[in-house]
Design a binder for these strands. Structure first.
Lengths: 132, 132
DNA sequence: CTAAAATTAGGAATCATTACTATAATTAGA
DNA sequence: TCTAATTATAGTAATGATTCCTAATTTTAG
């Protein structure tokens, strides 16, 4: 079985994700890591994002823009997706337990995670609507 | 402003979506509509799915498989995504209102919709795990 | 220091989705 | 019903996100 070696590029990816409050896409992460490691390749970013997601170090978020977003905060929390600027942000609320959300439903599968997201227009984009 | 004309292909797409309990992808829809309209093109399927989504006739679901899934049931309900077979199913529970889920959080944007999904292993795939 | 194993850069390939265009279907009105 | 304008379609090319491949580099254990 393959073990996991250290890599500077992977460390930089995690550090970058932990340093930002938004939930960037692979391409945004790539552009930012390039400032420190100009020769990093996009394939490396994707491979490490997949690895870190599999390890549970980061979360992959599927939104409505057909691009994966990544989040270094792994404790359960809500997300808000703006349909104008396509950015994802956190909502500062402690979510309900999956069992509470499921209610009385009988489900014979295995539930491993549960994720609520809100969609609409973010404060910034609402301001732009008004001024136009 | 462009008006919308009737089209048999679009009607077939809606009928197919309403006839199935799973939430198929564009490609699956395409393969099924082809049984009735062998000459339908994939572009037509995508264009109509986008139109129907914009009209609110159907819902587009973003899951973890980088493919959009479509759902003809537009009343709020929960979804379950199986990480093994990548299928999406409905959970028969009446969801909480967005306001309840948001709790006491102050959010100055506009929330238009809210969507909870559960992830894990579906009953069928759990059976396969056991027998292997 | 060295050799084996893991990771990388770079680029090609894949897959879902969108864009383009000439032809066909739909619709409103005579 | 016939016709002309409009809208939708089929087929194909293009796009964009993600994955795959391989030789070269980095990491690691001894």
């Amino acid at each position: 079985m393959a073990t996991t070696n250290y890599s500077r590029q992977r460390e930089a990816i995690v550090n970058y994700l932990r340093s930002t409050t938004c939930h960037p896409t692979a391409d945004t992460i790539y552009e930012n890591i390039k400032k420190t490691y100009p020769k990093i390749s996009l394939g490396t970013v994707y491979r490490n994002l997949n690895l870190l997601t599999a390890q549970g170090v980061i979360l992959r978020l599927s939104c409505d823009d057909n691009k994966d977003h990544y989040d270094a905060t792994t404790e359960p929390h809500h997300h808000f997706f703006c349909r104008c600027c396509k950015e994802v942000s956190d909502l500062p609320v402690k979510p309900f337990e999956p069992a509470t959300l499921l209610g009385e439903a009988s489900f014979s599968g295995r539930i491993e995670s549960c994720f609520t997201y809100f969609q609409g227009v973010c404060p910034d984009c609402m301001n732009e609507e008004e001024t136009v």
